[in-house]
Nucleic acid binder design. Structure first.
Lengths: 114, 114
DNA sequence: TCGCGGTGTGAAAGGGATGTGAAAAGGTCT
DNA sequence: AGACCTTTTCACATCCCTTTCACACCGCGA
């Protein structure tokens, strides 16, 4: 993965820039404020870009524990993350749902109507 | 079998790429969305490529149980799988029917009219 | 030609999975 | 304590997946 001048890993995907090292996200060069959990979810997904990640794996990566049955935490934070990303970058989609398994970070220009 | 950077088993057959490890299928490099059952059927077939697989074996591989007489589940999902594959890759055929036995994953360019 | 077994596939019912707003609980600062 | 923000949990609506049924088609044998 690309790294910044300070050596921090950085991911660029369209107008989105995720600086894992300093816990910063830029959308069109503008800072996108995320809460701790939101950033952790995003980071976990970005670190596994283009791979389908199970809810259990995401949960373990963020909460460091066993996910209880029917726990919806992951879904809730993915929803909030999507919401912020979409408001900042309306013409891009980043997180895809894989029903029955989990999510996949897969940036693409949104095909929806403008 | 070939493996990806993450060490996941990958099968390439013409323009089709099946990543068994991360539950992803690419058609001409583009993600092909499959449901759980569809992917399981495909995975079971790919794992037995070029072999004729009985309905019973496919059923056991996906549903983990004894197939009831006259159960059509396998047929239905093979049909849906074919449908999605054909829509994504019109000039290729992947699943052959062996009447009275089952199916066989055997990729080949389609000979149909253009 | 008729009947029959085998297969392809559309359609519908039902249920599980997901998106998401909102309340409850917890933390931090002053 | 009070204000404010975040995390957690709950509840509900919606979506879409699975399952099952039914019908059509095909090839074959009587």
């Amino acid at each position: 993965m690309e790294t910044s001048q300070q050596g921090d890993p950085v991911l660029r995907a369209g107008p989105l820039e995720v600086r894992l090292g300093d816990r910063t996200v830029l959308a069109d060069q503008r800072p996108l404020p995320l809460t701790v959990r939101e950033f952790q979810i995003l980071a976990a997904l970005v670190n596994r870009a283009e791979r389908v990640v199970s809810r259990e794996e995401l949960y373990a990566a963020v909460w460091h524990g066993e996910m209880r049955d029917h726990d919806r935490s992951v879904d809730v934070y993915v929803s909030r993350l999507r919401s912020k990303l979409e408001r900042a970058l309306p013409h891009w989609a980043y997180i895809r749902t894989h029903i029955g398994f989990g999510y996949c970070f897969s940036p693409r220009p949104s095909t929806g109507e403008w």
